[in-house]
Design a binder for these strands. Sequence first.
DNA 1: TTAGAATTGTTATAATATAACAGCATGTAA
DNA 2: TTACATGCTGTTATATTATAACAATTCTAA
Lengths: 133, 133
Amino acid sequence: MTRMHKENNLSKNQQIIFDLIDRSSEPLKAYTILYNVQKKGINAPPQVYRALDKLVEIGKIHKIESKNAFVACKNSDCEISKATAFSICESCEVVDEISDVKLSKYLSSFNHKKGMKFKRFNLEFFGLCKKCK
Amino acid sequence: MTRMHKENNLSKNQQIIFDLIDRSSEPLKAYTILYNVQKKGINAPPQVYRALDKLVEIGKIHKIESKNAFVACKNSDCEISKATAFSICESCEVVDEISDVKLSKYLSSFNHKKGMKFKRFNLEFFGLCKKCK
DNA sequence: TTAGAATTGTTATAATATAACAGCATGTAA
DNA sequence: TTACATGCTGTTATATTATAACAATTCTAA
Ligand SMILES: [Zn+2]
Ligand SMILES: [Zn+2]
Ligand SMILES: [Zn+2]
Ligand SMILES: [Zn+2]
């Protein structure tokens, strides 16, 4: 059984699942993850979803809501996932995390007319990538 | 059986489901919709999902991706759903469609570094509404 | 060392969404 | 008129995504 170390803030299952997502070139779905970690002893959906929830919470991964899939954060962990933006190709389905300081600042400071103060946003752009257009 | 009229571009099931969503004060989930239209003869999930797909396609409703729920467009049908933005209260779950021309223009003209040309975006802001904060 | 918090393992089930097939209505072209 | 295409409908079954509930173990901090 893996010992927890202070310098590593991920648990065993969290690390296994993060590594898989981080090495993937495309967003991974929960059950795809499950199939791929069964050889490592993760057998059931709740184990996957728990790890995913935690990884999202701490900003190591993001959920692409329109695809129910997960990608590793490429963006120094996105201030704990408060401001996420993605580009999604509607043809080849490639997903890129957008790191644009101006965009992020603009949206983080956006205030709704109706007096709501935002803590977080998620933005998904759709189109055709260079290869597909 | 309802006759199709040229002046009405929605079919019978589409109209029933649109009316329900339009009258609702909150986003509705597909199976909530199903339960509420069974008295009108819509019995099975595919009938609901087909109507929802079409209504989304023509911009009469939008899907709130983070909630798997649907709202009527409050915004003259959003140029056929090319540019959607919502505020979502994390406490009471109230959802508002944001109609902000500056925001919409800013995002519609945003171009990704990697040369992708965007056709569409969806933005979801999260926070606490006036009542909940 | 002990109590609380976090994580794990497990079974079962809930909630969301689509495949596949058949029928009917409308519009258009031969 | 017939024939065909398109779009909508109805139906059964199934696939996919996600959580409830409970017991046990491991980690952390006091
Ligand atoms: Zn990120
Ligand atoms: Zn592409
Ligand atoms: Zn709209
Ligand atoms: Zn609220």
